[in-house]
């Protein structure tokens, strides 16, 4: 079983690479929110360069080409050449768009990285919420009286059946959409799976001789849960959680598609993909890059999950052999 550690290492390396990029790249990239003359610099393909001309009154314009004829500066914006007297120009700076620009002339690379920070932190926080809630719920179901188990599981079914769209509506109607509300919604829609997993795994524990022994000693349910059940849940939970992180990022993309995602101008991979989808016929790179970023993350997390799973399996088999 040497596949496990190697996979785990590969997955962790991918995640690490992504995190490094997302944290460090903003240092060299332009401001992700800066709107640069959309008429001259909107919807440019990757590896484009524009010249940004700033005038005395603070306004600035961007064009693909620049030429000087005596006192006059000519700038090509879109398909037309436009002219300004040289004396009014304060500065002319070239700007590169590594991954192209969006409709408002914002830098896609910079937005992609900023969106990575948002998507990953939204994913992790909502995951933490879902795991906490789900674990508490599942443990309570197993360790409490039988009626509580029935009630809690019925509520899980009810929560699974509650249509996503209504809850989105209700939430968006009552509170101002923000990062916080998105995290809450994502968390609220993912804890049920965790609760079921925890309950299932904990039920297995309950049959084991060491649990029965501990119970026989008269330990309190809380202590039983914390000391004797929880440690056994760590591996399956970790495996499940890494996969779930990818699902959460995808769910955020679906919310954005329906207009309930992270509110603008904050970018997220999901909202960038959804916005890009609208213009894919004109600028295919706009939806593709965020799509690839989501795919890469899900792949990375799934690889980590696989690695963890195989590690667990290896241990288990080793333990049984011993």
């Amino acid at each position: 079983m040497k596949g496990g550690p190697r996979r785990l290492r590969f997955g962790l390396a991918l995640v690490g690479f992504e995190l490094t990029l997302v944290v460090l790249a903003p240092l060299v990239l332009p401001n992700p929110h800066a709107i640069v003359d959309p008429r001259g610099a909107g919807l440019l393909p990757p590896f484009s360069r524009v010249f940004v001309v700033t005038l005395q009154d603070g306004t600035s314009f961007a064009g693909l080409e620049l030429s000087r004829k005596g006192e006059v500066l000519a700038l090509r914006r879109g398909s037309s050449w436009e002219q300004v007297p040289e004396k009014l120009v304060v500065s002319v700076k070239p700007q590169w768009y590594l991954l192209g620009s969006d409709t408002l002339g914002r830098d896609v690379a910079a937005r992609l990285v900023k969106a990575g920070q948002i998507s990953l932190s939204v994913g992790v926080s909502s995951l933490a919420l879902a795991v906490t809630l789900g674990t508490l719920w599942g443990m309570a179901a197993v360790l409490g009286p039988r009626w509580l188990d029935r009630l809690l599981m019925a509520l899980v079914d009810a929560a699974l059946a509650l249509p996503l769209l209504f809850v989105l509506l209700a939430v968006s109607a009552f509170v101002r959409p923000s990062l916080g509300t998105v995290v809450l919604m994502l968390g609220f829609f993912s804890w049920m799976g965790v609760a079921r997993l925890v309950r299932g795994q904990a039920l297995l524990c309950r049959e084991k001789p060491w649990f029965l022994a501990a119970q026989g000693l008269g330990l309190k349910p809380l202590r039983l849960a914390l000391v004797h059940v929880l440690p056994h849940l760590v591996t399956p939970l970790a495996t499940d959680a890494t996969l779930r992180l990818g699902d959460l990022i995808l769910l955020e993309a679906a919310l954005s598609f329906l207009g309930f995602g992270v509110p603008p101008p904050i970018p997220s991979w999901g909202s960038m993909a959804a916005e890009g989808f609208e213009v894919w016929r004109l600028a295919f790179w706009l939806p593709v890059f965020p799509g690839l970023a989501i795919a890469l993350s899900v792949f990375a997390f799934a690889t980590v999950a696989d690695g963890l799973g195989e590690l667990g399996r290896g241990e288990r088999i080793a333990g049984e052999a011993a």
Partner: peptide, 16 residues
């Protein structure tokens, strides 16, 4: 990798 890639793509992009 491929099947995870498809799984990890937002549905609307796969459709597109």
């Amino acid at each position: 990798a491929l099947s995870l890639g498809a799984y990890a793509m937002p549905t609307f992009l796969v459709a597109a």
